[in-house]
Amino acid sequence: MNLRRFFSRSQSAPAARERLQVLLAHERASAGGSDLVTKLRDEILRVISKHMQIDDDKVTVRMERGPQVSTLAVDVEIPFDAGKKAA
């Protein structure tokens, strides 16, 4: 057995605890259908699709749920003639 690895291994329970706390805070909020981040994501995508055909490959949505602050990043690649197509 690799002794050094065994001794230097850090504790994993604190990570489990932290991950659970963040996750459950969000899951409890979304159980009532009031998860703001999910709502924003859906509405933003709906607005964009009103003005242009959304190509799934050209849209990236990233969510990062944190204990205090969550971030939502919507990255849409808009082709030059997108407006004309939708019109």
């Binding site: 850090s10 504790q11 994993s12 329970a13 604190p14 489990a16 605890r17």
Partner: peptide
């Protein structure tokens, strides 16, 4: 420290 404690 490798299992959640009771208090956790």
């Amino acid at each position: 420290g490798d299992m959640l404690k009771v208090d956790d």
